[in-house]
Simulated assay, not measured.
Amino acid sequence: MTIYIALLRAVNVGGTGKLPMAELKAMCEEVGFEEVRTYIASGNVVFRSRKSAAQLKAALEKRLALYAGKPVGVAIRTAAEMAEVGKANPFPEAPGNRTVAIFLDEPPPADTLKTVTHQNGEKIRLGKREVYVYYGDGMADSKLKIGAAKNGTARNMNTVLKLAEMAAAY
């Protein structure tokens, strides 16, 4: 059985997409996830399953759409992949709360960095299926736009490392 992490897009952020974690846990169990645990209220789920990542993504997105009345994006990573995201952080000396990994379904396009707009001191690096961003002055006032990351979901490095740790403890 594989250990996975599901990351929901735009859940409980800035007053949008309200979803109590107890309800999310119940929905995950409904679609067949096993040993489900959530972490903080931003849509992070650690669980076990025999299904493929694609099957899990499709099942959870379908269930979430029924709940929300609109599509809710989900990124899925195995425990090993999440650990690798943490290890591959190109800004290891930066504070974990100012560095994010934006999780994508596919590798970022080769021209990702050329299409960035409103960059003002943020540092950006490409990963396997992630875009890493270090917000030196914090995220609150950043106007950074990364077109390739539009449908992704971001987690700060503190959260990435905690999810990897939770998954490793299964």
Rank of each mutant, 00 (worst) to 15 (best):
A101G: 08
E130H: 04
K70L: 10
L163H: 10
M157N: 04
N156Y: 12
T99R: 12
A110D: 15
G86I: 05
S142C: 03
I124Q: 02
A94I: 11
E106Y: 12
R155A: 03
A59M: 02
A148V: 01
N89C: 13
K162M: 12
M157S: 02
F103D: 02
M157V: 01
K145Y: 06
A149K: 00
I124V: 08
Q119T: 03
M82E: 11
K87R: 15
G138A: 05
K123I: 07
K114P: 05
G69F: 10
E61P: 00
I124W: 03
L64W: 03
A79R: 08
H118S: 09
P109Y: 15
T99Q: 11
R129H: 12
R129P: 01
R63T: 08
V74Q: 00
L60A: 00
E130D: 01
F91C: 10
A101D: 09
V131P: 00
R63Q: 10
K123D: 12
G73S: 03
A65D: 13
A58S: 14
K143C: 03
K70T: 04
T159A: 07
G152C: 02
N120S: 15
R63F: 06
L113S: 05
T78D: 03
A58W: 02
E165Q: 15
G127R: 11
L163A: 14
I124D: 02
A164D: 13
Y134F: 15
T112P: 07
T78M: 12
Y134M: 05
I102M: 03
A65R: 15
A75I: 05
R98L: 14
D111K: 11
A167W: 09
A79T: 04
G121M: 10
L113A: 10
V160G: 04
S142L: 02
V116A: 05
V116K: 04
G73Q: 01
V116M: 06
G152E: 01
D105W: 09
P108E: 01
R129E: 04
G152Q: 03
G138Q: 04
G121P: 12
G121S: 13
K128N: 14
L66D: 13
A80M: 08
E93I: 08
P92D: 11
K123S: 12
G152A: 09
N120E: 15
K62N: 14
E165H: 13
G138W: 11
L144W: 12
P71I: 03
V72C: 06
R98F: 13
L60W: 00
G69P: 02
A167D: 06
T99N: 08
A168I: 11
L144S: 05
K143V: 03
K143Y: 10
V160W: 07
Y134N: 14
F103S: 00
N158K: 11
A154S: 14
A65C: 06
I124C: 07
R129K: 13
A58C: 04
L126C: 08
